[in-house]
Amino acid sequence: MADERAERIAEFVSPLRVGPGTEVRLPEDFDPAHKAGISKKKDGVELLRSGIELLADYQRRLAAQDVYGVLVCLQALDAGGKDGTIRHVMSGVNPQGVRVAGFKVPSQEELDHDYLWRYSRELPRRGEIGIFNRSHYEEVLVVRVHPENLRRQKLPLAARGPDVWERRYREINDWERYLTDNGFRIVKLFLNLSKEEQRVRFLKRIDVPERNWKFSPADVRERARWDDYQRAFSQMLSATSTEWAPWYVIPADRKWFARLCAAAVLAHTLIDIDPQYPQVSDQTRHELAEVRRDLEREAPEGAPADPYAASVAESAKEKKSKKSKNKKNKKNKKNKP
């Protein structure tokens, strides 16, 4: 069953993956309104619930094993749904095993270091899932669309030449390869929003008073650079989707479907890691058996010595009885004239 589930998830996320060496052209190559044949939102929500349960299980294993870490990079234009994706997809996991970092305008201290410095400081530890709400890819997106930001980074003149973007693509690929070689898997999600859906979401932020705080006139100024951003995203996806850290383009016009896709990609990564609970030694098992006997002797009169073991045995008994009853009913139905 687990293998079947893994195969279904792999098949679901495959069309979202940007193959290494692929030349991406947004929006021609990826439809922001795609929903993989899922016609009803309620079906997608149910699938998302199952995905969240799966993530919770694998996140516990990841933390217990304490060998691998996972870094999720979320990129999108304004109103793309990054915050909602984080809130919904990670709703079932242990908060202690997840770290979220957001990156805004760099501080003076950050500008006094190399451009990857502030991102490296927020990397997850082994056993953790780290989420970058915007990521190091801002350095080839916003900085590329607004070259004045490049001048603020105090680079030597020779480092600001026409090859700066190709060099940064290479440096980012090398950095991510370094991280994966050391046990940190990278999940890169681009929430692909259409221009019309962004317009609708902006209007809702204006129309609903409780959402006014989420809107800024700067968002509209950035919207005016829509085509520039589409080119920057296309070039980024083409240059930095690698075998060790591929990009997944998430259709983001329907929030429920975007969240389902994000959960599926993350689950696919964790299934591939396949973290396992640590195995204890024979000596530890012997000590646990002794402790168990002592605890069982402390049970109140009339109470089961081990309530958990008793409940598991009762559940197995009920399951066996139900299976036998169903088999008998099926046989009787078959023998009816």
Score class of each variant (00 low, 15 high):
Pro304His: 00
Val89Ser: 05
Pro20Phe: 00
Ala224Val: 02
Lys325Glu: 11
Asp294Phe: 11
Asn329Leu: 11
Lys327Phe: 05
His136Met: 11
Asp57Cys: 05
Val208Tyr: 05
Asp114Ser: 14
His113Ser: 08
Leu123Thr: 08
Lys317Ile: 00
Leu48Phe: 08
Gly69Asp: 10
Asn332Val: 07
Ser194Tyr: 04
Ala262Phe: 09
Glu148Lys: 14
Gln283Ala: 12
Ala303Phe: 10
Glu128Ile: 05
Glu148Ile: 04
Leu123Gln: 14
Asp228Glu: 13
Asp3Gln: 13
Gly81Met: 08
Lys334Phe: 01
His136Cys: 08
Val187Glu: 04
Val200Pro: 08
Asn173Cys: 10
Ile86His: 03
Ala159Ile: 02
Trp244Asn: 12
Glu122Phe: 02
Val100Gly: 10
Gly102Pro: 07
Ile9Ser: 07
Leu295Asp: 07
Arg125Trp: 00
Glu128Tyr: 10
Val100Tyr: 12
Asn326Met: 13
Ile186Lys: 12
Ser216Ile: 03
Glu128Leu: 04
Asp163Ala: 02
Leu260Asn: 10
Gly127Ile: 04
Ile271Gln: 14
Phe103Lys: 12
Phe184Pro: 02
Pro209Leu: 01
Ser194Glu: 09
Arg199Glu: 11
Arg201Gly: 06
Trp244Phe: 07
Pro209Cys: 06
Glu222Val: 14
Asp83Val: 00
Lys204Asp: 13
Leu288Ile: 10
Asp163Val: 00
Gly37Ile: 01
Lys214Thr: 02
Pro156His: 04
Leu55Glu: 06
Ala79Asn: 07
Asp43Arg: 15
Lys214Gly: 01
Leu193Lys: 12
Ile86Met: 01
Val187Cys: 13
Gly21Met: 09
Arg60Cys: 11
Trp244Ser: 14
Glu166Ala: 05
Ser216Gln: 09
Ala56Asp: 12
Ser241Cys: 07
Gln59Cys: 03
Gly81Glu: 10
Arg8Gly: 13
Ala6Phe: 00
Ala239Thr: 06
Leu237His: 13
Ala64His: 07
Ile52Tyr: 02
Lys82Glu: 03
Val140Ile: 15
Leu54Phe: 04
Gly130Asn: 12
Glu222Trp: 00
Gln198Asn: 08
Arg185Thr: 07
Tyr178Val: 06
Glu128Lys: 12
Glu210Thr: 06
Leu77Pro: 00
Pro246Arg: 11
Asp219Ala: 01
Arg118Thr: 05
Val249Ile: 15
Ser39Val: 09
Gly21Glu: 07
Arg211Glu: 11
Glu4Ser: 09
Gln235Val: 02
Tyr277Lys: 15
Lys82Trp: 09
Glu287Gln: 13
Asn94Asp: 15
Glu23Cys: 10
Gly69Val: 02
Ala6Met: 10
Leu191Phe: 09
Val70His: 11
Val187Gln: 06
Leu295His: 05
Val105Thr: 15
Gly161Ser: 13
Lys331Asn: 07
Gly37Arg: 11
Leu270Ala: 01
Tyr58Trp: 14
Pro95Asp: 03
Ala76Phe: 07
Pro15Glu: 02
Ile38Arg: 15
